[in-house]
């Protein structure tokens, strides 16, 4: 498979470890397979926009996309630690507040309420937020706001991202990138997801009706 996916690995790294700068091409290794597959399908349908990705996945069948997603999900690599962004202690405190507790006044849920108390995500759909660079995280939050990333249904991350103040995006990204990750950074099993997701969140929680 490694040989077949040269078009992926030339940017995302030989085993999906992500581009060296942590921004151009995100890490794929170890992310939940269902999440990776969903993103590949979104690139095909245009719900997620990034022209080079849209072009590369265009000719592929759903079964092959699934195999590719499973291939990268199965790569077990240690995480790279990104340099701590140069932000003030106050910004980091604000980031921590948002990640752990959200902003009830703006109806912004905490990150941990969906992505898990360890922030490593859940199988099979919920991506982790550890091991990502600050720039990559803020890029993604902004792309939810510009509809260059989208999801089916209630569009949960879009709702959350649109409720955030701009400095809060930078604060969340900075705290997540500088947070000391847990020893086990694998996504937690689906059964570990005991806190019900908000009703309007579609990611990996089909039992909950939006």
């Amino acid at each position: 498979m490694e040989q077949r996916v040269a078009a992926c690995t030339s940017c995302h790294g030989a085993r999906g470890e992500g581009s060296p700068d942590g921004v151009l091409a995100p890490r794929l290794a170890g992310k939940p397979a269902g999440y990776l597959l969903q993103q590949l399908e979104y690139f095909q349908s245009g719900q997620r926009r990034h022209a080079p990705m849209e072009y590369v996945v265009r000719q592929l069948s759903q079964p092959y996309l699934r195999q590719i997603a499973e291939y990268f999900a199965a790569q077990d690599l240690s995480y790279h630690r990104w340099p701590q962004p140069a932000v003030s202690a106050e910004v980091l405190r604000r980031g921590e507040q948002l990640v752990l507790h959200g902003d009830p006044a703006r109806a912004v849920p905490s990150c941990v309420s969906c992505h898990g108390d360890k922030l490593t995500g859940f199988e099979p759909m919920m991506p982790g937020l550890v091991g990502l660079s600050s720039d990559y995280i803020s890029n993604q939050l902004v792309s939810w706001r510009t509809h260059t990333r989208a999801a089916e249904g209630p569009y949960c991350m879009g709702v959350v991202a649109n409720r955030m103040r701009e400095p809060d995006i930078a604060a969340v990204a900075a705290w997540l990138a500088s947070h000391e990750p847990p020893a086990d950074m694998h996504p937690q099993p689906a059964t570990a997801q005991t806190t019900p997701l908000p009703g309007w969140c579609v990611m990996g929680h089909s039992e909950v009706n939006p």
């Binding site: 077949r4 151009l24 080079p52």
Partner: peptide, 21 residues
């Protein structure tokens, strides 16, 4: 770069890296 089309006869095509970047 990119993949050859996935077809019934070649369901798992090989690919070429994009060199634009």
């Amino acid at each position: 770069g990119g993949f050859a089309p996935a077809t019934a006869a070649n369901p798992r095509p090989y690919s070429m890296p994009p060199f634009a970047q």
